Computed example of a mutant assay.
Amino acid sequence: MSEAKRAARQSRRIGLLVGVVVAALAISILAWQGGGGSEAEARGRWTADAHCGGCHQVAPGAEAARRSGVPSFVLLASARPQPEAVQAWLATPHPNMPPFQLTVEERANLAAYMVSLAPARR
């Protein structure tokens, strides 16, 4: 087999492997919240893990804070069950927190995720 054919075959294998990895990643992101939830919620969960998870407990079902006196996302969502209220809250400076800059889209996604954690009101 010529070198060119080997290189082409290797390139196709790598392309196929990359495609499989990307598909698996997309499926895992969609399944991240138990198979439900929107894309905005999944992106919001990623934003929460990346920007907030060092101090806040961001995972569903986990109430304990990572640091003493820091509320969990479930607790924060309980106080603000509307996406608009969460977005406005995220846009204002927070005392006792390091400054953070989120885009409008990141705030909207984070709000969608946080609202998804709010307990159902009866």
Rank of each mutant, 00 (worst) to 15 (best):
M1Q: 14
S2F: 11
S2I: 11
E3F: 13
E3C: 10
E3M: 14
K5M: 14
R6H: 13
A8S: 13
A8K: 15
R9S: 11
Q10H: 10
Q10F: 11
S11K: 13
S11V: 06
S11G: 11
R12D: 12
I14C: 06
I14F: 10
G15W: 06
L16G: 13
L17A: 15
L17M: 12
V18S: 06
V20H: 03
V21A: 15
V22L: 10
A23P: 06
A23T: 11
I27D: 05
S28L: 04
S28D: 04
I29M: 09
I29T: 06
L30W: 09
L30H: 11
L30T: 04
A31W: 13
W32S: 11
Q33F: 07
G34C: 10
G35C: 12
E39P: 04
E39W: 07
A40I: 06
R43I: 05
R43H: 07
G44A: 06
A50D: 10
C52K: 03
G54E: 05
G54F: 03
G54R: 03
C55D: 03
Q57C: 05
V58E: 01
P60T: 02
G61R: 00
A62F: 09
A62G: 05
R66T: 07
R67I: 12
R67L: 15
V70G: 01
P71Y: 02
S72Q: 01
S72K: 00
F73W: 07
L75R: 15
L75I: 11
L76M: 14
S78L: 10
A79E: 11
R80D: 00
P81S: 00
P81M: 01
Q82L: 04
P83S: 05
A85S: 08
A88E: 09
L90T: 00
T92D: 12
P93N: 04
P93E: 10
P93D: 09
N96Q: 12
M97L: 07
M97I: 04
P98S: 09
P99L: 11
P99Q: 13
F100C: 01
Q101C: 06
Q101K: 13
E105P: 01
E105K: 10
Y113F: 15
M114I: 14
V115P: 01
S116V: 09
S116Y: 07
A118W: 07
R121V: 11
R121C: 05
R122E: 12
